[in-house]
Amino acid sequence: MKKLLIPFIILMACQQQSGSDKLPFMGNTIYEENDTIYHTIQDFQLVDQDSSIVTNETFDGQVM
């Protein structure tokens, strides 16, 4: 009996829940006529663990 119970519990724990729950989109969104303007980060300048300067241009063109 125990040999059947453990695989059953694992199988039930691995199943996905039904429904179409979507993750919330965080941030300010401004709608202007037919355009959507999303929140942007102000210009910054930091020093990383290797003493290199990191700015917003460091991540230009990358999806985070």
Rank of each mutant, 00 (worst) to 15 (best):
T29Q: 15
M12T: 13
K2I: 07
T29D: 13
M1S: 08
L46A: 01
T36R: 11
L11F: 15
L23P: 04
T58F: 09
T40V: 05
I37Y: 12
Q15C: 14
V47L: 13
D43L: 01
E57S: 10
Y38V: 04
Y31M: 09
C14G: 11
T36W: 06
G61T: 05
T40S: 09
Q16A: 13
I41E: 05
D48P: 00
F25Y: 12
M64W: 11
V47D: 07
T55K: 01
Q45M: 12
Q45H: 07
Q42S: 10
V63W: 11
G27T: 02
F44D: 02
P7T: 07
N28S: 14
G27V: 00
F25Q: 11
Y38A: 03
N56Y: 00
D35H: 09
Q49L: 04
I30Y: 09
F44G: 03
D50H: 04
V63S: 10
L11H: 08
I53D: 00
T36H: 04
G61F: 06
K2Y: 08
L46I: 04
P7W: 07
S52K: 06
T36M: 12
F44S: 03
M1K: 08
F44V: 03
L5H: 08
K3D: 06
S51H: 09
N28L: 12
F8S: 15
F44K: 01
T55P: 01
Q62L: 14
Q42F: 05
A13R: 08
T58C: 02
A13V: 13
Q62C: 11
Q49A: 07
T36N: 05
Q15S: 15
E32N: 06
I41V: 14
T55F: 02
T55E: 01
D35I: 10
F8R: 15
D35V: 09
F59N: 03
N56D: 06
S51N: 14
D50T: 04
A13C: 15
K22L: 09
F25M: 10
Q62M: 14
L11Q: 07
A13D: 05
I41Q: 07
Y31I: 10
Y38F: 13
M64N: 10
E32C: 01
T58S: 12
E57L: 09
T55V: 07
Q62Y: 13
D48S: 03
V47G: 01
K22I: 06
Q15P: 06
V63D: 10
D60F: 05
I41W: 07
E57W: 01
